[in-house]
């Protein structure tokens, strides 16, 4: 039963990836794709698959996996099915960090995630501070409101930072704030994948703490969790994962919300399973969403964040109804 679930997840990702490599302005058969991957066959097909679609798919996988795991960690630890990096303003904070870095002229694949992480960590801290100051214990509704407020503040900060920038920079920044995996190159993808693997592995290492924190803070303490240390660690890792995705693909909302719920819907229960399942499902979802984004109105592209939001918003409303 469990093995079948994981097989399903892997098949899902494989199908999404095959679609991402085959579908586009030049449509290729799966045979063409396979040959092109090994550098054989038509030179144009090789260039399209290897240089364009594969890098793009790679960035989509990293983005989806990071957002999925970040959402799964936040939901378990905050005991809140509506928690996710975008709605909690964490992605917004990361965007501020990234924009500051870009304005300061730091655009290296290494530096951008670090700057984004600083912004994301700041946002997490701020959201929790606001939520706790208002309601002592973390009330899920107040937490979301704090997230919205911090997100709005981040938006304002970005607008101010961009007010002096040239028109080209504003256009770029705007596109990026709506999320996109279009500008992917191998150096960036590999750096981000490395960061994601490291942060993901650390999160898997504290997964049992997430299981226990999902019972409530006192219950977790009674079961051997050093609550404040564990929570700080998990929030920082979740912020780091979200920051990596923001550095690579901008603001892609709702993936972190939808994907852990799907993983649980598939019967995954323990945090470690939910994290891994969310990584695979998130990757599949973002790869598929990117295929939609670049084919629905071809030759022009829809913003990736808009596509995920169109899936995510109705889902959010359904969840909200069930929680309330």
């Amino acid at each position: 039963m469990t093995a079948r679930r994981w097989l399903l997840l892997v098949v899902l990702l494989a199908v999404a990836c095959a679609a991402a490599l085959a579908i586009g302005p030049v449509s290729l058969s799966l045979g063409d794709v396979a040959r092109a991957l090994f550098g054989e066959g038509d030179a144009q097909a090789v260039a399209i698959v290897r240089d364009l679609r594969l890098t793009r798919m790679g960035l989509a996988i990293v983005t989806g996996a990071g957002l999925g795991m970040s959402g799964a960690a936040l939901q378990g630890t905050l005991r809140n099915a509506l928690a996710e990096p975008y709605l909690l303003g964490v992605s917004g904070g990361a965007a501020v960090g990234a924009v500051v870095a870009v304005v300061a002229g730091l655009t290296a694949s290494v530096a951008l995630p670090v700057a984004a992480f600083a912004g994301a960590a700041g946002a997490v801290g701020l959201v929790l501070l606001i939520a706790r100051a208002t309601s002592g214990r973390t009330d899920p509704r107040i937490l979301l409101m704090a997230g919205v407020v911090v997100g709005a503040f981040a938006n304002a900060a970005i607008m101010i930072l961009l007010a002096g920038a040239g028109e080209g920079a504003v256009r770029n920044a705007l596109w990026w704030m709506m999320g996109s995996v279009a500008g992917a190159d191998w150096t960036t993808v590999l750096w981000l994948a490395g960061y994601t693997l490291a942060a993901g592995a650390l999160l898997l290492a504290v997964a049992r703490d997430i299981d226990l924190l999902a019972l409530g803070e006192d219950a977790a303490a009674g079961l051997g969790v050093r609550v404040s240390t564990a929570m700080r660690r998990i929030f920082l890792l979740a912020a780091l994962l979200a920051a990596i995705t923001v550095a690579g693909a901008g603001l892609v909302g709702f993936v972190g919300l939808v994907v852990p719920a799907m993983a649980r819907g598939l019967g995954l229960r323990r945090a470690r399973e939910v994290l891994l399942g969310s990584a695979v499902l998130g990757a599949s979802l973002v790869v598929a969403a990117d295929v939609v984004a670049r084919t629905v109105r071809a030759p022009s592209e829809l913003p990736l964040g808009a596509v995920t939001a169109i899936v995510g918003v109705p889902f959010f409303l359904l969840r909200l109804r069930r929680t309330a």
Binding site: Q75, R79, N80, A81, L215, D218, A219, G222, G224, R269
Partner: peptide, 16 residues
């Protein structure tokens, strides 16, 4: 400590 002492707190509910 948790191996020595088990606590059933007043409130406790799995989030999921």
């Amino acid at each position: 400590l948790a191996r020595t002492m088990a606590v059933v707190a007043q409130r406790e509910e799995p989030a999921f």
